[in-house]
Design a protein around this nucleic acid. Structure first.
Lengths: 256, 256
DNA sequence: GAACGGCACTTGTCCAAACAAGTTCACCAA
DNA sequence: TTGGTGAACTTGTTTGGACAAGTGCCGTTC
């Protein structure tokens, strides 16, 4: 829990402040429904100007964690479920954020030409090679998810220098400077195939929760295409929406 | 600055600006992928200071309509998929927004005491009565989803005066003044039971995509608890996230 | 006791300025 | 032609100030 290195960090002040405020809320230091310190107080407490404090608070407001109006002090709102990019993109990050221990067993890492279906999804020419990784992911030792990732060669080649049994591919790639910036996730259900069934210890055909993901670079190129299959009694997806806030999640129909 | 500015609207300037910008984008005046005028330009164009322009742009950024970084002019982002509250909450609204024809066949509408599990989810005492509705929903005549809804009696009693084969329960309830304001949706996978299988025309046990929903009133009371099971090849859920915008969707673990 | 007015305090809005950091592009030199 | 330099321009960050507008409270007044 030791994470106080404010002077070395190169993050802007307002960002550090909003992170700090977020933690005060999630840790219960600032309780739900209670007003938080006035802007003037926060200014003197952290030795910054009011503009900076307001910038930090605006970030929390846009996430729905804080409400309030003119004259009234801002209050901590009902916690809105949301996850950061890294937490949502990476199984390992996700597990750590929950205080659980992620595990992984690599079953295959191979370079092979993309079939027509995959090439279409990734915007490649059929036959262009991709790096395929098949891993079994676990939480606290319990098999939870079967992960099938396909990387474009430029990204995937870096993986041959990485022990995919050691942890987060997402973390490794970002540390190598690969700019994963956007993800598109399609969630559906699928019956377990023979591989899924054996790895997860269920009957073939039993229902699995599937997250099909495309990961994009900043310039719009598709870097990765994955197919993650969860045991539905071990992991779910949750979203909340209100009359005033549109849901970013979309239910889409599929044409026959 | 001028003291007497007879403004037509009493909205703050930054809000009028962001509304104007939003319309420029949706009308196609500012095209997707194209950079929009620099902040300095917008300042002189509208005769305001840079802070105000930035405040307006920040609003668009938080909605994901605009991206950009230091040094680069802001660009109009790819439209972010999102659905309004009504579209996301109501099967009929959803179908209509897609130009498809929703259908429904009511198989059962009954008043019976809530079992322990349901009572726990809805915050009722076990044995308190609920109104249960079982419907088969279809898109353009194709069976798509099995809908199991449970309403608290206060809401559900209104349904006995409504032909549940005629259309949207959500629409009917809102027209009757029931204030559905918030929804919490849990998405997972489940094997088809005998009823699902017969209605949807699949084998028992085959994978279905389930949306488990709690609908809340403005005062926090739970009005409805539903279990919708989709044919996974006919409907999916999609969400996008970026490095800068946290996903409102959350992947949650379930304890054993 | 109730209603009113005013004061202190709070947040919202807007401006002006300065610097930091990144991008673009023309220009010049090798 | 190619490469690098640097100026011009862009957005990001931070500060400071000023005023408007809303809330809560206290004291006065009826």
């Amino acid at each position: 829990m030791l994470k106080y290195v404010p002077s070395i960090s190169d993050e802007p002040i307002h960002q550090r402040l909003s992170d700090l405020f977020r933690e005060k809320i999630s840790s219960g230091d600032w309780k739900e429904g209670k007003p938080l310190p006035s802007e003037a107080e926060l200014c003197t407490q952290h030795g910054v100007s009011r503009g900076t404090v307001r910038q930090a608070l605006a970030s929390l407001r846009s996430e729905g964690m804080v409400t309030g109006g003119r004259g009234k002090p801002p209050v901590v709102a009902r916690p809105v479920p949301s996850q950061s990019f890294a937490t949502f993109m990476s199984f390992s990050e996700w597990a750590h954020s929950l205080g659980r221990e992620p595990g992984q067993r690599t079953l295959e890492i191979a370079r092979r030409p993309a079939d027509e279906d995959l090439a279409g999804k990734m915007g490649l020419r059929p036959g262009e090679p991709v790096i395929q990784v098949l891993r079994l992911r676990s939480l606290d030792g319990n098999p939870t998810m079967v992960e099938r990732s396909n990387f474009i060669v430029e990204v995937g080649n870096a993986l041959f220098g990485f022990d995919t049994d050691s942890g987060s591919i997402f973390g490794y790639l970002t540390s190598r400077g690969v700019d994963l910036t956007r993800g598109r996730h399609v969630i559906d259900a699928v019956g377990a195939d023979a591989t899924d069934a054996e790895l997860l210890g269920v009957e073939p055909g039993s229902a699995l929760l599937r997250e099909h993901r495309l990961t994009y670079a900043a310039d719009g190129r598709i870097l990765e295409c994955s197919d993650d299959r969860y045991l539905p009694h071990l992991a779910n997806f949750v979203i909340e929406n209100t009359r005033t806030a549109r849901a970013a999640l979309v239910r889409v129909p599929l044409v026959a």
